[in-house]
């Protein structure tokens, strides 16, 4: 029982990996980009010794290290998706998972040094999700969003973690939040939802076929509505 569920989780993780690899690079990451260290502690070149780093500064260092590892892992996954044979693919995917594990360790340290660091919680969630640990990913996203409710990367990726756990109603709610507030993220989530539907068609999870079909038509309808509705940023750029 447990084993079945686990292998399914892994397969989904792989699929999401493939979907991600196909996305343009700037959409792939969870929104985290290297952080400058908090000001105050930096020393100019003439100074003899740098003062010891504050916990916040240490947190930023861990976070930036985590981002590097995450990007490495994503690159490996992309390679895996393009691999010519199954053996290479599995090998690259395994390597990617190892890098995600290392990233998780760094993000964790970042959140230990600075518990209020919402980006670190969010990227921890992202890396956990990529290893298939949806419950832990959800916890990390929840923490990020309790600190910064408007942080849309976490809203989106938490929704993808919901999908991993077949919690479609929660994922739908997240989509509605994003549709009003961040159309780029909303579109990205909708693509992930479509991929998820295909995956569940091939390997059914806890949803009944009827429920899956219902969700699928919901996705189709939202896609139609989104196509009809120019976002504010589209209107900003529009040639009338």
């Amino acid at each position: 029982m447990k084993k079945v569920a686990h292998s399914k989780v892994v397969r989904i993780a792989l699929l999401i990996g493939v979907v991600f690899a196909l996305l343009p690079g700037d959409l792939r990451a969870s929104g985290g980009s290297p952080m400058p260290r908090p000001s105050g502690g930096s020393s100019s070149s003439g100074m003899p010794a740098a003062p010891p780093k504050t916990p916040e500064e240490q947190a930023v260092d861990y976070y930036n290290a985590g981002l590097k590892l995450r990007d490495k892992a994503l690159a490996l996954q992309k390679e895996a998706a393009q691999a010519s044979n199954e053996k290479d693919r599995a090998k690259l995917e395994k390597k990617a998972q190892q890098e995600f594990d290392k990233a998780i360790a760094q993000f964790r340290k970042a959140t230990e040094k600075n518990a209020m660091f919402h980006e670190a919680h969010s990227d921890l969630g992202f890396a956990l999700r990529k290893t298939g640990d949806y419950p832990a990913a959800l916890q990390a996203y929840d923490r990020a969003l309790s600190l910064a409710p408007a942080y849309t990367p976490a809203v989106e990726y938490r929704a993808e973690a919901y999908l991993g756990l077949d919690r479609v109603e929660d994922a739908k709610q997240a989509y509605m939040v994003l549709f009003a507030g961040d159309r780029g993220r909303a579109d990205e989530l909708l693509r992930a939802m479509k991929g998820w539907v295909e995956e569940r068609r091939a390997a059914p999870g806890s949803l009944t076929p009827d429920a899956l079909q219902e969700f699928s038509s919901w996705v189709t309808q939202r896609e139609e509505l989104a196509g009809q509705t120019p976002s504010v940023s589209e209107l900003q750029q529009r040639q009338w």
Binding site: L235, Q236, Q239, W240
Partner: peptide, 10 residues
């Protein structure tokens, strides 16, 4: 609106 680029009226 705020942030929109100026447009030619139509």
């Amino acid at each position: 609106f705020e942030g929109a680029r100026p447009i030619a009226p139509t």
